[in-house]
């Protein structure tokens, strides 16, 4: 499996995404923001960081980069795209995901491990997470409060697009368990066609026990699993 990790100026979780994917035994390489080819990658990761210094608004400039036009095409053709932290912000700015990420309610940056409750297992990003499993994954952001209109929130619910919600260690969706004040404790969502995911927590930072958690691997393994399923089907058809 080949993962493309987009490198914008001041992406800074880019090498961590590569590390996590290679740790699982798959291929990952950078794609430079000025390029317009994904070099045949199976999955696109838009990593965390402060792309273009987050000037104007988080993710606001990155969406205009040449590679994002290619990523949008890739997504429209059912390609799997996961945006993490700044990547989530970029996907919202690019219109690939609904809603927006605004300043944390505390008005401060927050770096800590949180618990996540998968809200659905019906997605390429959550299908291999064991039922009842809460994921312990870190967040590190200043603008991670998910916000959208009531209609959009309703649509997310109706279409089962909410992927992860912040919860406490027992799985309760409490206000205190959210590091940023997101509506409905939303930590991650997908688009209607379920091939584009955005999440504020960093699964790539939870890829081995020495880093305090390996729960992030469930998400990457879900992606790998669903793609190999697709690949198998294609193989049978042809």
């Amino acid at each position: 499996m080949r993962f493309a990790v987009i490198q914008f100026p001041a992406s800074n979780c880019d090498q961590d995404a590569i590390y996590a994917i290679r740790f699982l035994g798959h291929n990952a390489d950078f794609v430079w923001h000025k390029e317009n080819s994904l070099n045949g990658a199976d999955v696109v990761i838009i990593p965390g960081g402060f792309s273009y210094g987050d000037y104007l608004r988080t993710g606001a400039i990155a969406r205009f980069s040449p590679i994002m036009q290619t990523v949008c095409e890739f997504a429209k053709n059912s390609g799997i795209v996961i945006g993490i932290c700044n990547g989530f912000q970029i996907l919202c700015e690019a219109g690939l995901l609904p809603g927006a990420l605004i300043r944390n309610r505390s008005l401060q940056f927050r770096c800590e491990h949180v618990f996540l409750k998968p809200a659905t297992f019906n997605s390429p990003f959550t299908c291999k997470i064991p039922q009842e499993k809460l994921l312990k994954i870190p967040v590190a952001h200043g603008e991670g409060c998910y916000y959208a209109s009531p209609e959009t929130i309703q649509e997310l619910k109706t279409n089962d697009q909410i992927l992860f919600q912040y919860c406490d260690k027992d799985g309760n969706l409490t206000e205190q368990s959210s590091p940023n004040g997101s509506l409905l404790n939303i930590a991650g969502i997908c688009n209607q066609t379920r091939n584009v995911c955005g999440m504020m927590p960093h699964p790539e930072r939870a890829c081995e026990l020495i880093l305090n958690s390996e729960d992030g691997n469930f998400i990457f393994q879900s992606i790998i699993h669903s793609l190999s399923k697709t690949a198998d089907k294609t193989a049978i058809k042809s």
Binding site: N12, C13, Q15, D16, Y19, A20, G48, Q108, F109, R110, C111, E112, P138, A140, E204, R205, C207, I210, L211, N212
Partner: peptide
């Protein structure tokens, strides 16, 4: 203080 710092970026911090 330190919850305002990203103390784990680069996947190397093993004791926080």
């Amino acid at each position: 203080v330190f919850r305002q710092y990203d103390y784990m970026v680069r996947n190397n911090t093993v004791v926080y």
